[in-house]
C-alpha cells in the first residue's frame, strides 16, 4: 500500500518523416471527426440556464421565525459579509452583504437553529452596491422560486460516460 516511484521515458522521440505524416493525418482525422459529430460541452447560457443540485451553496435565505439572534453567523463570517443589526426591541437579526460574501456557507453550517439555508440560485445581477445588502424582509425571500417560475428553460447537469456532461431539461 502507498505510492512508489516508477521511472519512465518519453515514448518515441525523433520520429521519422513517415511517422510524422501519420501523426499529422491522425490529428486532421480527429478534427474532421469532431467536425462531423461535435461533442458539445457548452450550452446557450442566457436562453437556457442550469440549476445546480440540492446542496449547492448559492444565495443565503433567512428563516426569521427560527432565528434567535445569537450572532454566531456574523462571528464566523470570514469576509465580514454577514453582520447583525437591531431589528426591533431586543431583537438581533443578520443581514448579508453580497458585495463581500464568498459563499463559503460557514454561517449556514454554524447556525444552531438551522435558520439559515442556501438557495440554489447563484446568478444574480445587481444594479447598485446598495442593492447587494440583503436586510430585513429581503433576506427572507427564497430566490429559487423566482428563477424556477421564470421564462427561461432550466437544465440539470449530469455527468455522462460518453458525452462528458449532459443537460437534462427540468421543464
Amino acid at each position: 500500500m502507498g505510492g512508489k516511484y516508477v521511472e519512465k521515458v518519453v515514448p518515441s522521440r525523433n520520429l521519422s518523416l513517415l511517422n510524422k505524416a501519420k501523426n499529422h493525418a491522425e490529428a486532421l482525422a480527429l478534427g474532421a471527426k469532431f467536425l462531423v459529430r461535435p461533442l458539445r460541452i457548452t450550452y446557450r447560457y442566457p436562453i437556457v440556464k442550469e440549476i445546480p443540485d440540492q446542496g449547492y451553496r448559492g444565495l443565503i435565505v433567512l428563516d426569521d421565525n427560527k432565528c434567535i439572534g445569537c450572532s454566531l453567523c456574523a462571528r464566523i463570517c470570514p469576509a465580514s459579509a454577514m453582520k447583525m443589526f437591531q431589528a426591533g426591541e431586543k431583537k438581533l437579526r443578520p443581514a448579508v452583504n453580497y458585495e463581500r460574501c464568498v459563499f463559503c456557507g460557514y454561517c449556514v453550517d454554524i447556525c444552531p437553529e438551522n435558520a439559515l439555508k442556501h438557495a440554489r440560485t447563484h446568478d444574480v445581477v445587481f444594479e447598485s452596491g446598495e442593492s447587494m445588502l440583503y436586510i430585513g424582509e429581503k433576506f427572507t425571500l427564497d430566490p429559487d422560486t423566482q428563477i424556477l417560475s421564470g421564462k427561461v428553460r432550466i437544465y440539470r447537469v449530469r455527468v455522462d460516460e460518453k458525452r462528458g456532461l449532459i443537460y437534462e431539461p427540468i421543464r
Binding site: F34, L35, P38, R40
Partner: peptide, 13 residues
C-alpha cells in the same frame, strides 16, 4: 464555426 464544432462549443450565435 469549424473551430467551435471541433472545440466542444457553439461558436458565434
Amino acid at each position: 464555426k469549424i473551430a467551435g464544432r471541433i472545440q466542444m462549443r457553439y461558436g458565434p450565435l
